[in-house]
C-alpha cells in the first residue's frame, strides 16, 4: 500500500472521474486506486471538481411532474437495491475487489490460458473499445519486446517486472504509449501477475509473436 512509486496520470484520473473511459481502463484505474492512497485522494479531488462544476452549471428546467414522478419511483420499489462497494480484503488477497468481481474470486479462480514460454493470460470480459487481461509471467521470464499502437497500462498485482524504464512492484502502474518499445522481464524473486489494459493491439517487433498475436489477442 505505501510503497507505490508509479501512479496514474491526472488525465486518466480525471477521465475516470468524468466517466469518459472505456470499461477496461475503468477497471485498471479502480484496481490501482484500491491499492494506492495517493491516487484515491487525487481521485476524490477530481470528483469534487465535478461536484463544483455541477453546482455552478446553468440549470435546465424540469417538467412540472418531475418531483411527483421521482417520489413515485421511490415508493414503487422499482429501483435496484443499493449495492455497497466491496470492502477491502485487508491485503489478504492478490486481486483487489474490482478485479475479484470480474474473476469471480481471487487468483485461484482465474482461468489461465498458456501463451508460450510459461506465460499465461486470461482475457477479462469488457466492452470492445479496449481490452483487459491478466498476465502470469514466471519469475525471470521476458515478455517479447514490443511497441504500442495505442495506450497500454500495466498494473503489478504480485511480484515485480523490470523494463528499460524502471522496476515496477505491487501496486505500480506503467503507462506505455506509441513512444515506448520495451521488454518487460519478471523479477527473479517471485512469479509476476499483472493486469494490462490496452486500447489497441500491441505491435510486436519479432516475427513469431506478430503472427501469433491475433490468436493470443494481446
Amino acid at each position: 500500500m505505501h510503497n507505490v512509486k508509479h501512479h496514474l496520470t491526472d488525465q486518466l484520473l480525471m477521465a475516470y472521474s468524468a466517466g469518459t473511459l472505456p470499461e477496461a481502463f475503468n477497471l485498471i484505474v479502480a484496481a490501482h486506486v484500491s491499492m494506492c492512497d495517493d491516487c484515491r485522494a487525487q481521485l476524490a479531488s477530481f470528483d469534487s471538481v465535478g461536484g463544483a462544476l455541477l453546482d455552478g452549471t446553468d440549470s435546465q428546467p424540469v417538467a412540472e411532474d418531475c418531483f411527483a414522478e421521482t417520489m413515485r419511483l421511490i415508493t414503487s420499489g422499482a429501483l435496484s437495491p443499493v449495492k455497497r462497494p466491496s470492502p477491502s480484503a485487508q491485503g489478504a488477497s492478490v486481486l483487489p475487489a474490482p478485479l475479484r468481481d470480474y474473476v469471480g474470486g481471487d487468483v485461484d479462480k482465474v482461468k489461465w490460458k498458456p501463451i508460450g514460454m510459461g506465460v499465461k493470460q486470461a482475457i477479462l470480459p469488457t466492452s470492445k473499445e479496449a481490452s483487459a487481461r491478466l498476465l502470469y509471467i514466471p519469475a525471470g521470464t521476458a515478455v517479447p519486446d514490443h511497441g504500442h499502437r495505442g495506450m497500454e497500462l500495466t498494473l503489478v498485482l504480485q511480484g515485480a517486472f523490470v523494463d528499460e524504464t524502471d522496476r515496477f512492484g505491487r501496486g505500480d502502474i506503467e503507462i506505455a504509449d506509441e513512444d515506448l518499445t520495451h521488454t518487460p522481464v519478471a523479477d527473479i524473486g517471485e512469479d509476476c501477475i499483472c493486469l494490462a489494459a490496452t486500447d489497441a493491439p500491441l505491435r510486436f517487433n519479432k516475427l513469431i509473436p506478430r503472427i501469433a498475436q491475433p490468436f493470443f489477442r494481446i
Partner: peptide, 19 residues
Amino acid sequence: RNRKIDALRKQRRPEPEDL
C-alpha cells in the same frame, strides 16, 4: 455520472474497493 455511464455510454465503471 454513474447514471450517465449506464444510460448514455453503456459502459461499466467498476468502483475502487472501499476503505
